[in-house]
Each structure stands twice: as C-alpha cells, then as structure tokens.
Design a protein around this nucleic acid. Structure first.
Length: 333
DNA sequence: ACGGCATGTCCAA
DNA sequence: TGGACCTGCCGTG
C-alpha cells in the first residue's frame, strides 16, 4: 500500500545492494518464471523510481518493471548496505508495518518499526533478520540459512552473493524492452524526485489548469502527477485549504503551484523518514502527541466524523472513484 | 478464528 | 460501475 515515498526508498536499497552486481533471479511461486529466467545471471545496472513504479535495469538492455499496488512488498534479507539518505533499512519495504531487528552493529530496531532509526552514519554492512508475521516467525531466529528459505508466495526472488530481495503480491511485475520502458515512463506525470522540480511544476500546473476534472481526482491520476495516493491526496488538499470538487481549471494558479511545491516537500520528508508525515508544521510536542496514536497522524485522512483540528467541523468522507476522500467542508469550502 | 478493510490499478460490461 | 487481483492487519467475538 505504498505511495511514492516508499518506492523511492526501495529503489535506493536496490541502488546500494543490487546495482553493479550479478543477480540470480527466480520465481519460487512460478508466476514469473519466464521473466525470472530472462533476468537470471545478468548484472543489474541502474534503478529508477518514478511515482509508484520501480524500474531495475539489467545488462544488455532489459528492464524489470514493478508496481506494488495495494498489497505488494519487498522483503530484504541477508547483508544489506544501508542507504545513508533514508532513515533506516530494515527488512520489509512497501507494507506499512515494518519490523525487523538489525544485528551486527549498534543499531537495533524497536517495535515501533521503520521510523525508530533516525541517526544515519556512513553506510555499513548490516545483517538483517526479518520477522514480519506469524508465518515467518521462527525463521528469523535461525538466521544463518543462505539463501533464506522461501516463505509464502514469492513472485520474484533476486539474489546477489550476500543480499536477498523477495517480491510478493505486486500488481505489476514484468520484463520490458527499452522502448516499452520508455512508453511506460511517457505515461507518467512529473515526480518531484525525478528531473528538475521546477519543470515538473510547469507540467503539473499546465495540465491541471486545463482540465474540467475535479482537483481531487487529478491528484490521484498518475499521468498528471506521479506518486500521490489516497493519503497524500487528502492531506495535500487540506493543507492547501482546497475543495476537492473544484475543477482543475478553476483552481487558482498559485494554489496549483502551491500544491506541487507542497508535494515536493512531503515526498522528500516521506523518503527520508519512511513515514507519511503531513503535519510537519506542528511544534515538536504536538507532533509527538499526534504520532503516539495511529489515527492521529493526519489532518483529515481517516478522520471521518472527527472534529477538524483547526475549525472543529466534522470531517466528511465520500466515495470518489472507488476511493475514500476525506476533507473538511469548512476549511476547504 | 474470522471478517472487514486498506496507502492501487486494470478491465469487462 | 463493479469485480478482480492479492496480502496483512486490526477489531470483534
């Protein structure tokens, strides 16, 4: 259930642990057997994250395209070099609840999960044991088996000599030619972390200001802007005090630009922390309080019926294109 | 133990 | 517009 920030974090892990290494690929589950055999034995050469998609290049011009969808996740195991630009690198990336124990150096994850690691030093080797669910319990304690035993439905396993990445439940997992990969890219709107953000702002603004579609739908459309999902949509609109139903072309240009710049900021924070932080403007104490409860982390998302944090009006929820849209009818009038 | 729900997207009717 | 895909968590009992 990742939005764009998770995919960038995953890509950085691949950059550090798979790029420039020879990779063994297999499909323990069998549903990607053909693709895996195409990739098997090749050297990974490059990784790109654009919105919710990740592209991993292999020598001789093959691209692996992965979209996690709602349920997809990567599990990392073995020796993992921690990317210094992200807060932590425990085993699982993509799913919300990420727990693991890092052994082998001074850093030990606690039960709070991914965000508990905040100090980043120079990259170093870290032995990671992943224990995610009852299903995998027990395996982590053995810890020494290599390669790690396959647990459950693994669509794709990528292995270097020392690092293992297991992909489960993706919406998309396919091998692409360079042309196919470029075609996929061409269909994606700007991502604040890809290319020049100022250019992205121009593209985003131009498209939004032309469309009769409600801004609340445009923000979820990956051809308009990449990486925004249901949580960031609701929060960006609230932060802009913008009514989700306003047609894009009627949203004042400065507001549209403001939403883009806010997305740039929120995505950066999300990649760095692994959390969908949308109340970053709170003072530290209020922030600590808000983070204490799972349902207190956002302005409007998942807060139907609760009083708006600013005006007290009950947050409303409605169905928009089969997704729940939360907003404050007073602040976002 | 079980059922509902979820940070996503595609496709057929 | 509704279902399919596919997995794990959380609340309820």
């Amino acid at each position: 259930m990742p939005e764009g920030h998770s995919v960038h974090r995953i890509a950085r892990q691949f950059d550090r642990n798979f790029v420039a290494r020879q990779v063994a690929a297999s499909s323990p589950q069998g549903r990607f057997a053909e693709g895996a055999s195409l990739l098997n034995g090749r050297v990974a050469t490059e990784v790109r994250a654009v919105g919710k998609q990740m592209f991993l290049a292999f020598d001789d011009d093959l691209w692996l395209r992965v979209h996690l969808g709602m349920y997809g996740a990567w599990d990392f195991a073995g020796e993992i070099l921690v990317d210094p630009t992200i807060a932590s690198a425990n085993g699982r990336m993509g799913q919300t609840n990420q727990r693991g124990t890092e052994l082998g150096d001074e850093r030990v994850m606690d039960a709070a999960g991914e965000n508990s690691l905040t100090s980043i030093g120079a990259p170093r080797r870290t032995r990671v044991h992943v224990r995610m669910s009852e299903q995998t319990k027990g395996l982590a304690d053995e810890g020494t088996e290599w390669p790690p035993p396959v647990v459950g439905q693994v669509r794709l396993r990528l292995l270097t000599d020392i690092t293992c990445a297991d992909l489960r439940g993706p919406t998309a997992c396919e091998v692409q030619s360079p042309d196919e990969m470029l075609a996929t890219l061409a269909g994606l709107g700007p991502d604040p972390l890809v290319g020049d953000p100022a250019e992205g702002e121009e593209r985003f603004t131009a498209v939004v200001r032309r469309k009769p579609t409600p801004i609340g739908l445009l923000l979820m459309n990956q051809s308009v802007v990449s990486g925004i999902g249901n949580v960031y949509r609701a929060e960006l609109l609230y932060r802009a005090r913008q009514n989700p139903h306003t047609p894009g072309r009627e949203v004042p240009e400065e507001v549209v630009r403001g939403i883009w710049r806010d997305w740039v900021r929120l995505l950066q924070i999300g990649v760095a922390t692994g959390q969908m932080m949308t109340m970053d403007d709170l003072d530290p104490e209020a922030y600590r309080k808000a983070m204490a409860s799972r349902d207190d982390r956002h302005w409007v998302y998942h807060r139907a019926g609760l009083p708006c944090r600013v005006c007290g009006t009950a947050i409303v929820v409605e169905e928009a294109a089969a997704r729940k849209l939360y907003w404050c009818p007073y602040c976002q009038a």
